[in-house]
Computed example of a mutant assay.
Amino acid sequence: MRKPSWFNVVSLTLGFAFLYIPMIILVIYSFNESKLVAVWGGFSTKWYGELMQNEAFLDAAWVTLKVGVISSTIATVLGTMAAFVLVRAGRFRGRTLFSGMIYAPLVMPEVITGLSLLLLFIAVGMDRGVATIVLAHATFSMCYVSVVVSSRMASFDESLEEAALDLGCTPWDAFKSVTLPIIAPAVASGWLLAFTLSLDDLVIASFTAGPSATTLPIKIYSSVRLGVSPEINALSTLIIGLVTIGVLVASITSKRAIQKQKRDELLAVH
């Protein structure tokens, strides 16, 4: 095994330090007794209690979760259908335009996407709220789902589906019983990616949100403009904790799945 050079070690150390030291400082100051963010006044968890009683943040978090679940589900269905057409439909009239429209949101500036959707909602007379945010998030995140699912379907062995059809399955039964279980990890990955993009979005949501629907990123941004409060540090720490737990669970699950697959292969050989 090749020994890493000092340049690589220093570069990685500086990169990780630049990324994670601010997060560590934020977590530490979320337990600060003082109202002043930059002045340590002793250890306390009172700001977590204050956060749990803050109706504005709780309502924004509920709106964010609701929008994320609904929009990612819609985006997964539409993105999977688009991927199926791109991979299985072959050459058809308008394919280049169709694929271009699918991939355009990947490189389109979010400001342009948000402004165009705002003008659309105004033109059709649709009041801005949870529904408009859901439609906006589903619109720009479905292309990510399409890319993930289409990459999996491109390597899919179609002979398995053909065998199911030869055994008497209808095309829908073959898709439901053979194709969908095989591409299910890619579909789940696309859903998680769309959900993450929805939770993280600020620009598009700021164009399409109304007074009755404020997402958590918008609420945090508007609060930070008036000054960083210890409650925001506590909220950020909770988010970091949830993300860390999710990454650990995903890593452990993936590791166990790989170990199980290796054991099954060894048993099959013997």
Rank of each mutant, 00 (worst) to 15 (best):
A174F: 10
G129Q: 00
S159V: 03
G168V: 07
C169F: 15
A131I: 13
S206M: 05
W191H: 04
M126C: 00
S198T: 12
D200G: 13
A184Q: 05
D201V: 00
W172K: 03
V149P: 00
L192R: 04
P185T: 07
S177F: 15
V134I: 12
S159Y: 08
L197Y: 06
A174D: 11
D166W: 10
A188G: 04
T208S: 05
H137G: 04
A184P: 04
P181M: 14
S146C: 13
A163H: 11
S146Y: 09
P211D: 04
G190D: 12
G129E: 00
L167T: 15
C143H: 08
M126K: 01
S155H: 14
V145I: 14
E158H: 10
H137S: 04
L202F: 14
S155P: 05
A194N: 07
P185W: 09
C143P: 06
C143K: 03
S177Q: 10
S146L: 14
M142L: 09
T179A: 08
S189T: 07
L197R: 05
R128L: 11
S198V: 10
D201P: 07
E158P: 00
P185D: 06
S150K: 12
T196V: 00
R152A: 13
A186C: 06
H137T: 03
Y144L: 14
D200W: 02
I204K: 00
S159R: 15
A184T: 12
T179K: 06
M153C: 13
T170A: 13
A209S: 11
A163N: 08
F195M: 12
A188W: 09
I183T: 02
V147L: 09
D127N: 14
F156C: 10
V187N: 15
W191G: 03
F207M: 01
G168H: 08
S206Y: 07
P211M: 04
G210T: 10
V178F: 01
V130S: 01
I183K: 11
G190P: 06
V145Q: 13
V147Y: 12
M126F: 00
E161Y: 09
I204R: 08
K176H: 11
I133E: 02
S177V: 02
M126P: 03
P211N: 09
V147K: 15
R128G: 11
A174I: 13
V147P: 09
A164M: 14
V147C: 04
V187Q: 09
T170D: 12
S141F: 05
T132P: 00
V147N: 00
I133C: 15
M142T: 06
Y144F: 10
A205R: 01
C169K: 10
S189R: 01
D173Q: 09
E162P: 01
S155C: 14
L192D: 07
A131T: 08
L197Q: 09
Y144R: 15
I182C: 14
P181T: 13
V145G: 11
M126Y: 01
D127Q: 15
W191E: 07
S206P: 02
S159D: 13
G190C: 10
D201S: 06
